[in-house]
């Protein structure tokens, strides 16, 4: 069974309706989907419910899967869209459509991601909307291309670029604010400590 690709397993499941094929797909992706849900809800019981619903959604919609995209991309799009729908945090903002020649310079990945500390990044991600968080995770955690994200979220590629840009700006702002906050606290603490030391 290991030699079968995801797409072959899907075809076998659709044709035969045998659970064994679904179970193999499940074994390949359950941890990934569960982790994704957990990083959204931070609660194991809720994440389990989310993963449960996502896999049922997958089964109910498996007939509509066209092999135009990778199966994993399709499954992640169900996962992200489900989490976004459930959390219902951000209000839809009007998208400013950019012209097709909009140049997306991705300097974020190389320089800034490398500089970010995982713990502080995690904290900063909690303070941005679920839509912003998911688009950043799609790009930088799941390594999806702009085209794949656009297909997953059903928005144009230029809208994806714009949303990514805005999400990164928000994340950077919160991340830097956090850094500044801790720098001030540390300075304050040190100044009090040294003042005491002098007396």
């Amino acid at each position: 069974m290991k030699k079968f690709s995801d797409e072959q397993l899907v075809r076998l499941f659709v044709d035969t309706q045998k659970n064994i094929y679904f179970e193999h797909i499940y074994d390949r992706y359950s941890d990934k989907v569960y982790r994704k849900c957990l990083s959204f809800v931070k609660d194991e019981a809720k994440a389990e419910d989310f993963a449960h619903d996502i896999f049922l959604k997958l089964v109910l919609n498996i007939g509509s899967y066209k092999e135009t995209s990778k199966f994993s991309t399709w499954l992640f799009s169900i996962t992200y869209n489900y989490c976004i729908d459930q959390l219902r945090i951000a209000k839809k903002k009007a998208e400013v459509e950019l012209d097709e020649n909009f140049d997306f310079v991705d300097d974020f990945e190389d320089a800034q991601v490398a500089e970010m500390e995982a713990k502080k990044l995690n904290k900063a991600l909690e303070h941005i909307s679920v839509e912003d968080r998911s688009i950043l995770m799609m790009k930088y955690q799941d390594d999806l291309s702009i085209k794949e994200i656009s297909a997953s979220l059903d928005i144009s590629e230029s809208a994806v670029k714009m949303r990514l840009l805005r999400a990164k700006e928000k994340l950077k702002k919160i991340y830097l604010e956090n850094l500044l906050f801790w720098a001030i606290i540390t300075t304050k603490f040190l100044s009090i400590f040294f003042r005491h030391d002098h007396h």
Binding site: N19, F22, E23, Y26, D27, S30, D31, V33, Y34, R35, L38, S39, E44, E48, A51, H52, F55, L56, V59, E109, D110, V113, A114, M116, E117, A118, L121, N122, L125, L136, M137, Y140, Q141
Partner: peptide, 24 residues
């Protein structure tokens, strides 16, 4: 390999075992 904090923050947990049976 380039450092990527986004990869580091992914929780290192596995899906509950009962889930597979329930879904099936």
């Amino acid at each position: 390999e380039k450092k990527n904090a986004f990869k580091e923050i992914e929780p290192n947990v596995t899906a509950p075992e009962n889930l597979k049976k329930e879904i099936s």
